[in-house]
Simulated assay, not measured.
Amino acid sequence: MLNALEIVTTVLVGLMVGVEFAVAFVMNPIFSALPDDSNQSARSHGGRMLGAVMPVWYIGSLILVATWAIAGWDHDGAGLVVTSGALLILSVIMSILLLVPINNQGKTWTPENRPADWKQQMNRWDRYHYARVAVIIAAFTLLVTALV
């Protein structure tokens, strides 16, 4: 049973990392190359769509990692799993304090009502997101290492 939990947790966290990596290094650069109205509309739509899904994914991943840490406490790699969980907690805190406030504003913008500094706000969101991606990549790496 522990093996199944380890595999499911690692796959789900890995998929989350892949989505967030793609947002940072594929989707947002594509959006930024579009004309301003299309760029802003794409980011707003992405903020609404992923803003609905990602909280469940982050919290679900954290619950799975915590369950793995508890169930596998006496197994090799438990410290790595606990450290991974701490990094996922950090990523949730970063999300709540830094990224969600910007996203909550940005997802309501249209070309007609966006603020004059919308690009600066999106650039700030991108910088915070790069840091969060680094944190969740480290958490995922620890989970993979704990498996071997």
Rank of each mutant, 00 (worst) to 15 (best):
L2I: 05
N3S: 15
A4I: 14
A4K: 13
E6W: 15
E6R: 15
I7G: 00
T10K: 03
L12N: 02
G14F: 09
L15Q: 06
M16A: 12
V17N: 00
F21L: 14
A24C: 14
A24K: 09
A24G: 11
M27R: 02
F31H: 04
L34A: 10
N39K: 10
Q40H: 05
Q40P: 12
S41D: 00
S41M: 09
R43D: 05
S44L: 03
S44G: 01
G46M: 13
M49E: 12
L50M: 14
G51E: 04
A52G: 13
P55L: 14
I63M: 06
A66D: 04
W68E: 02
A69N: 04
A69I: 11
A71F: 00
W73D: 00
D74G: 05
D74N: 15
H75E: 05
H75K: 14
H75Q: 11
G77P: 09
V81S: 02
G85W: 11
L87R: 12
L88I: 08
L88H: 12
I89M: 13
S91W: 09
S91L: 03
I93R: 08
L98H: 05
V100L: 05
N104A: 13
Q105E: 01
T110S: 11
E112C: 12
N113E: 06
N113K: 07
P115N: 06
D117L: 01
W118G: 06
Q120P: 02
M122P: 02
M122K: 12
N123L: 11
R124V: 09
R132T: 01
V133L: 14
I136P: 04
A138F: 05
A139I: 02
F140S: 08
T141F: 12
L142T: 08
V148P: 09
